[in-house]
Design a protein around this nucleic acid. Structure first.
Lengths: 107, 107
DNA sequence: CCGGATCCCAGCGGATACTG
DNA sequence: CAGTATCCGCTGGGATCCGG
């Protein structure tokens, strides 16, 4: 992540910068599929640490991929949602899913 | 790469396992765009080390994404090409490109 | 429940030099 | 040209504890 390289000319650089980090794609997948809560993601992604999840969520928010909304219910709840920019990632995610289903196990 | 996690149920796991490594997506992009030679890729990807490129190419070959063909010309040349499995990644790459073009610079 | 802060370490991958 | 070998720095991220 945060390539810092002189690949600005490479036409896929922006998205690679975002999704190439470990766990990032999975986090996006969860949000894309309506799993909008921190705890839910922790449960859905066995193995991820809270630190990593926090880091990813913050990065995605900072880059305008997701929004973080706090509801002052009791106890307070937080919802993560895709922005338009984030929703536009859908074709990538779905084509990733299609490829994965097609080639899971033996080719 | 090589998740080893219990995310086998996650529908995008196979492809994430492949492209999430640093540089991997760029290497695939180059081959997809007809840059089939080792030296050409080194030149096209400023900052990549030969070690990393070798590792990535070997990994991609092992997973059946690309083939490695040696021509015994003088000097011998090597060509990397996408298999059918690799060509099937095209929708992912093109949607990555489209998103990147759309959101490069300010949103 | 939703995280932040800290500590720590394996391993990815960069630099460099060398081979066929 | 097309890699391999070695060495090692650096950072991603896991574990754990703490706070609102």
């Amino acid at each position: 992540m945060a390539t810092e390289q002189h690949l600005d000319d490479c036409p896929i650089q922006p998205v690679v910068d975002i999704i190439s980090g470990k766990w990032t794609a999975y986090v996006l997948w969860e949000i894309y599929n309506g799993n909008n809560h921190y705890g839910g993601m922790v449960r859905a992604l066995p193995g991820i640490s809270t630190r990593t999840l926090s880091t990813r969520l913050k990065m995605l928010e900072q880059r305008g991929i997701i929004t973080r909304t706090v509801f002052d219910t009791n106890p307070p709840t937080v919802a993560y949602q895709l922005t338009k920019k984030g929703t536009a990632l859908a074709p990538i995610l779905t084509s990733m899913k299609e490829w994965s289903e097609r080639f899971r196990e033996t080719d």
